[in-house]
């Protein structure tokens, strides 16, 4: 019944791992790499959320505004 709950854990996992990689790269003095890693992780998560928002809007359209 729940939509796709796995994605919740996926996002949380990506967040934690990216934060760890960021910390380690920063410790080693590779700040530019660290920022790239964070940016890429963020883009991936943002993509997932954007897809879901598209689904949401589509559903709302279908349910409430079905004749337009």
């Amino acid at each position: 019944m729940p939509y796709n709950v796995d994605a919740v854990f996926q996002i949380a996992g990506i967040g934690i791992i990216v934060a760890m990689i960021h910390t380690i790269l920063k410790q080693m003095g590779k700040e530019d790499w660290a920022h790239w890693v964070t940016l890429i992780g963020f883009i991936i998560v943002l993509f997932m959320v954007a897809m879901l928002i598209r689904d949401l809007f589509q559903t709302i359209k279908n349910v409430f505004l079905f004749h337009s």
Partner: peptide, 23 residues
């Protein structure tokens, strides 16, 4: 001194990240 530990940790973390991304 600088990179030895980094490579080891990055190996593990990178693998976990790939798994989470593709799971």
């Amino acid at each position: 001194e600088q990179y030895e530990k980094m490579f080891r940790t990055m190996g593990v973390l990178g693998g976990v990240l790939v798994v989470i991304l593709l799971y």
